[in-house]
């Protein structure tokens, strides 16, 4: 009985804690997606080990605790994850790479020009397609084809921040001195996992990058750069 009460009390505190989270990159960023299978956590994009390639990483369904929660986390077959690439500078996607799960496999379509741009999409089944078996906690699955490399599965969250102190800081009165010094500060994400989709792709497949948008705001000298974002779209 005592254990039950303790469990309810701790559970209630955890729920309370989660309900007041205000930021964590894009983890649980808005009420309508928080805790759902479309909730994106982070986008990373960087030069690959092969300098002619770019790596795109989408993480989603963040805040997976180790063990059973991580083992049970699955991609949703009704959710289409899209990597959008604007290579003309108008902030409209010129190329997309789509990822969607079927069975134990993640399928990839593209890069290809989308049949329609914007908030609504269809799977580009006419496009270049690839796939990778979805990795588990214990088994790493990677596939290579068409010059691209693919991964989908659970991974340790690469994102780090003192989330709890941040929530104090933005209310001011609780933390008049701001953030804590190193040593006292605590990385909320240190021992948490996410689901991840990783694509490494030759730059030659992404087109010529447009002028950097920073130039429009007075930041000079920035190199040409694609505008990249990820979207999570649910089957209607």
């Amino acid at each position: 009985m005592k254990k039950t009460k303790l469990f309810i009390a701790v559970g209630g505190m955890v729920l309370l804690g989660f309900s007041i989270f205000l930021v964590s990159a894009d983890h649980i960023d808005a009420p309508n997606v928080s805790g759902t299978t479309t909730d994106l956590a982070d986008l990373f994009a960087f030069e690959g080990d092969n300098p002619n390639n770019t790596v795109f990483i989408a993480t989603l369904q963040g805040i997976l605790t180790p063990g059973i929660v991580t083992e049970n986390a699955i991609f949703d077959e009704d959710v289409l994850i899209e990597f959008n690439i604007d290579n003309t500078g108008d902030f409209i996607e010129d190329l997309v790479i789509q990822a969607i799960k079927r069975g134990d496999t993640m399928y990839f379509f593209g890069p290809a020009s989308p049949s329609q741009t914007g908030l609504s999409s269809e799977v580009l089944t006419f496009a270049n397609r690839n796939s990778v078996k979805i990795s588990t906690v214990d088994n790493l699955e990677i596939s290579n084809n068409d010059g691209m490399t693919f991964f989908a599965g659970p991974r340790r969250d690469a994102f780090y921040m003192d989330l709890n102190r941040f929530n104090d800081v933005i209310t001011g009165a609780v933390a008049p001195d701001g953030f804590l010094p190193p040593g006292e500060a605590s990385d909320f994400f240190e021992n948490l996992n996410t689901l991840a989709i990783v694509i490494e792709i030759p730059n030659s497949m992404l087109g010529t990058p447009p002028a950097h948008v920073g130039g429009e705001l007075g930041i000079s000298g920035l190199p040409p750069a694609y505008n990249v974002w990820i979207s999570a779209k649910r089957k209607q």
Binding site: A41, W229, A232
Partner: peptide
């Protein structure tokens, strides 16, 4: 070779629920 997708259904319309470009923009 890659698994065959013949017989796997990819149809339908998918509508955006979340997006991210730079980190932490929306919630901050």
């Amino acid at each position: 070779c890659e698994p065959c997708i013949v017989g796997i259904e990819f149809g339908g319309t998918y509508l955006q629920e979340d997006m991210i470009g730079r980190p932490a923009i929306n919630t901050v």
